[in-house]
Nucleic acid binder design. Sequence first.
DNA 1: ACATGCACCTGGGAGC
DNA 2: TGCTCCCAGGTGCATG
Length: 264
Amino acid sequence: MPELPEVEHIVRYLRPRLATRTITGAAPSFPGLRGRTIEAVRRRAKLVLVDLDDGSTLAIHLKLTGKLWVRAEPGPKARLALRLDDGQALVLEDARRLGWVRRLDALGLDRLLAPLGPEPLEPGFDLAALRARLARRRGRLKPLLLDPTFVAGVGNIYADEVLFAARLHPRRTSASLAPADVARLHRALVSTLRRALDARTDEVPDQERVGAGGRGAAERISGLKVFQRAGRPCPRCKTTITRSVVQGRGTYTCPACQRMPAGA
DNA sequence: ACATGCACCTGGGAGC
DNA sequence: TGCTCCCAGGTGCATG
């Protein structure tokens, strides 16, 4: 479960279930955790950060298919289970096994987080901040949005949704943007992620709604306008949404709303 | 500096 | 049913 809104939602689900709990064991064994008390659960970019009472932090990256649960029984798919003092367990499942968990001291955590770009939903990420970052980079918009050092938390789904909301073609370059384009991009980034996060108000994270069928993300995340909707009408103008490949990633656009200006 | 392609892994769906 | 192929929400690195 990966992008900013989903990871944030998982963190909100975990926080009351993990805070003040003491870890009583780990399977498979994980050095140094027994007896540690969990002080805080937070998010940076797509990382879940679990702060422990000795100043160390468990950093968890779910990558493409990682899921985190708190429940009584780890179950057969568990990659890692941390036993808690209330009888529950923090369980990591990860079908593709690309995710990871690291225990880091303060310095190691700093080194992990230092390269990351700004949090798009934090107040500091205003129009001027985006303008300044765009001015320092060349490149096409979609790869920029997907670059965790450019902006934190945006992945393949929301990159496409943001660019659609901003009416910008994913291959537009940063240098080709007029001030009004940058303003629309900023508004789209904030509002798209905000709305996605606010839509997740139910107690149960998306990851629990399995069995929805269909292809991955699009079926489980409601409100998507273009992502994985090739062949269907644009919700704005009814033109057929198309799929292309940008940077090796499936990319969905409305060819009418997101035109490539001549010379861009 | 940027684009491209590949690496890490596995599973599910579509089509034959 | 059982193939085979394509696709998948992320990053990091190596190469042009």
